[in-house]
Design a protein around this nucleic acid. Structure first.
Lengths: 141, 141
DNA sequence: CCGAAGTGTAACTACAATGATTACAGATAG
DNA sequence: CTATCTGTAATCATTGTAGTTACACTTCGG
């Protein structure tokens, strides 16, 4: 399984914005994440579309949190950054002539739905504020 | 996120072997899954290595379940077919000069561990026998 | 009103994982 | 002995991703 880094980078961005109270440019964020500013801008675009950050054009522009960090949970971040579901049943059509092949797809889809729900439960109960707090605990050691 | 089809195909294979009591060749299985026999043999190899199926070389060879379907859960199948964890934190090293970048990785790893545990809980409680039963319910309708 | 500093996006490249396929060596039943 | 299997290597096309360059457009500050 190849997992994208968009979600972890997005959490990084949001945590950074929560810690620094001021607006940050994509270049400044890119320096912390250690990647290219365009990569950051792409992800910021998704986050802005989802209403998680505000971006300002022009000189002295940049991004800020659209809401307090306590009110942003990781499930929203996940949905904003990844268009597909966490688990997508990605098989070609099995044989319709086989009783098993003909019926296994919805059964597997059901299993995947349970997996998805379990992960979403975890993500929905974790906020950016908690992430920031965990980071700050580590800073003070 | 690009998800492999190895896991769902493996479940398909095991369900098929559970339903047909006899040994099946990779060609026969491939016909049900609708793919190439070599793809099936590769996955069967992983399943055999994990002790979930028995394979027999030579003429009249093929694969059978190594254990009753009630005693094979999907977590074993997952581990047999996918070498990496479900979620791997896949980011380059963030900046060590930024307090956030320096400390976010273990925090995110912790989140991922919770996600992983939640999914494993679901998979561990689902057996091939249950999958087969769900399939059979659908056949009789 | 102009220039510097930003965002927003398109286009291109390099890279890695995957599935499909061909080919062939080795095993085994009949 | 031969047909029928598995096991495995090698190759190919496809796809998603991150990185990068380039450029139009916006906006603040002098």
């Amino acid at each position: 399984m190849v997992t994208s880094s968009r979600f972890p980078v997005a959490v990084h961005i949001l945590a950074l914005l929560a810690m620094q109270k001021r607006s940050l440019s994509s270049t400044a964020i890119a320096a912390s994440v250690n990647t290219n500013p365009v990569v950051i801008r792409r992800i910021l675009g998704s986050l802005a579309q989802a209403g998680l950050v505000l971006t300002q054009l022009g000189s002295e522009g940049g991004a800020t949190l659209a809401r307090p960090a306590e009110q942003i949970n990781l499930l929203e971040v996940q949905h904003a950054t990844e268009k597909d579901d966490l688990f997508t049943l990605n098989t070609g059509q099995a044989s319709l002539f086989c009783p098993c092949g003909k019926n296994i797809q919805p059964v597997l889809a059901n299993v995947y739905a349970h997996m998805e729900a379990a992960v979403e439960e975890v993500l929905a109960h974790t906020t950016i504020a908690q992430v920031v707090q965990d980071i700050e605990v580590r800073i003070n050691t």
